[in-house]
Amino acid sequence: MVTAGFRRQSAYRLAMLAGLVANMTFGLIRSAQLSAASQSAGGSLAGYEHDQLMSFVWVSQGLLGAVNLFGSTEIASRIKDGQVAVDFLRPTSVVGQYLATDLGRALYTFVPRGIPSVLVGAATTGVAFATAPLHWVAGGVGVLLGIAIAYLSAHCLATLGFWFVETRGFEATYMVTTTFLAGLYLPVSMFPGWLAAIAHASPFPSMLQRPVDVLVGRTTGLDVWTSLATQAGWFLVMLALALVLTRAGRHTLEIQGG
């Protein structure tokens, strides 16, 4: 299923190009804003040196195609029209097969969107990464966990379709909440204390903020292991929740028209 997801995503080359253009455009906007804020603060902002802050912008933009912060999933439409019944007849876990497919999709996006976005950042604003091999290994594992957590969270959102005929309101609210609390627009460390506490009590920073902080070298020492443990914990929580909701929805599915 991972291979199938990778191959299917590779068919949408123009979409990947459009995504890269969007990544570069918003990366330049975000880097300009945060660079000005950093320079106004004397070169360091919320614990980020200027180069680390630029790296945060471009790595998060590069991961945006892989990490599903927007909540759109194939299974949502299949629940809506009832085709998910076919998925339940297959001799595999519904959650497992879609998670594996999404992982393959995400892995492909690193080639046409992720790496070029970081290279654009290096050529325009400059970037700086952690140099210790531990950070690269931990960061890679963290990215995979972030992809999985983001998918499982979006899967839980999709299961609302088992109980509600129309879910677009939930999806819009989810997209706004997730992209903000995951640290896409601003690092969570820049939030007011009460808002940062809310963010850290949710799985959203584990989707993007935590792995990026490891890769750019802001998270160091034992905090690297704490970050990975937090991500692993949220992965298990979201996996259990996705399995429970999918199982419960299987017995309550009602589609429009019958």
Rank of each mutant, 00 (worst) to 15 (best):
G62K: 01
R250L: 12
L236W: 14
S202Y: 07
R105L: 00
M54K: 02
G121L: 08
G146N: 05
F26P: 04
R210M: 15
L28P: 06
L241V: 13
F180K: 06
V212K: 03
M175H: 09
L69R: 04
S153T: 07
A128G: 05
A199Q: 00
H50A: 12
Y12C: 01
F129Q: 04
A158H: 07
T73M: 04
S10M: 08
G140N: 00
F70H: 11
L222K: 07
G27V: 09
M238F: 00
L181P: 02
T3F: 15
Y174F: 07
A15P: 06
D223Q: 10
S72E: 05
L157F: 02
R7D: 13
Y151Q: 05
V137K: 10
T219E: 08
S40G: 13
G142I: 00
P112Q: 01
L152A: 09
S77P: 13
G47H: 08
L152V: 00
V84I: 11
Q209R: 14
P211V: 00
G193Y: 02
R105Y: 02
I75P: 06
P91E: 14
Y12L: 10
A240F: 15
A106K: 07
Q9T: 06
D223Y: 05
T226D: 02
S189H: 12
T226A: 15
M54H: 14
P91T: 14
T124W: 09
T101V: 01
G5N: 07
F164Y: 07
Y108N: 03
T173W: 12
V214W: 09
Q39T: 12
D223N: 10
N68V: 10
T125H: 09
L64E: 02
Q61I: 03
A122I: 09
D81V: 10
G5D: 13
Y12Q: 14
A154N: 11
G126Q: 12
A172E: 10
V111M: 10
A46D: 06
M190Q: 12
L89I: 05
H155T: 07
L239M: 06
G161S: 08
Q83S: 15
V86Y: 05
E171H: 10
A199K: 04
A122F: 05
L152P: 09
A106F: 00
E166H: 15
A130D: 05
L145I: 06
M175N: 14
